[in-house]
Amino acid sequence: MISKIQAIVITILILVGCVPFSVHAASSEASSITQEIVEGSKGFNPEEVGSRLNKKGEELFEAARSGSNFYIYLALAVFLILLIGGLFYKKLLSVAFLLLFLSIIGYLIINFWPQIFDTVVSILDWLFDKGGSNGEAALGV
């Protein structure tokens, strides 16, 4: 009959014996992955990657925009619940109007993000290209 100590020693020997096989398999797998990365980087086209990222971004933005109506309805429902709760607890009134303000801002950002982004970029462009670098001295200097 095998004692507990012999069973533990045999189990440890089997586990230690299997480690080199798994290490060898992992190293050969890692080299094949490295080879795939090297081969894939030869045909890398940044314009293609950029256009795919832009397309995915537009898809995500359209998904967010399609859910914006549900977002505003849910925000209005929570606002009304907090408003009713505000009849009993005055602190809930301020939370209700804060939620209403933030939800309206969020709704506007979701639906008009391209226009907001273009406006901010044009202001920064004017500030750093035309407004700040035309080399004229300021009045009073």
Rank of each mutant, 00 (worst) to 15 (best):
H24D: 11
H24S: 12
A25C: 01
S28I: 15
E29H: 07
S31N: 12
S31M: 09
S32W: 07
I33P: 00
Q35P: 00
I37Q: 05
N45M: 06
N45G: 00
P46Q: 01
R52A: 14
L53K: 06
L53F: 05
K56D: 09
L60S: 06
E62G: 00
A63S: 10
A64I: 14
R65M: 06
G67D: 15
S68Q: 02
N69V: 13
N69F: 13
F70E: 13
Y71N: 02
Y71P: 04
I72A: 04
I72R: 08
Y73V: 10
Y73W: 11
Y73A: 11
L76N: 12
V78K: 14
F79S: 00
F79W: 09
I81N: 01
I81V: 15
L82M: 07
L82V: 02
L83A: 14
I84P: 01
G86H: 05
G86L: 04
L87H: 03
K90H: 08
L92G: 05
L92Y: 04
L93Y: 03
F97A: 01
F97C: 04
L98S: 14
F101Y: 09
S103A: 15
I104H: 02
G106E: 03
G106V: 03
G106Y: 01
Y107D: 01
L108N: 08
F112R: 12
W113V: 09
P114S: 03
Q115Y: 10
Q115D: 15
I116V: 07
F117G: 05
T119V: 06
V121D: 14
S122K: 11
D125G: 15
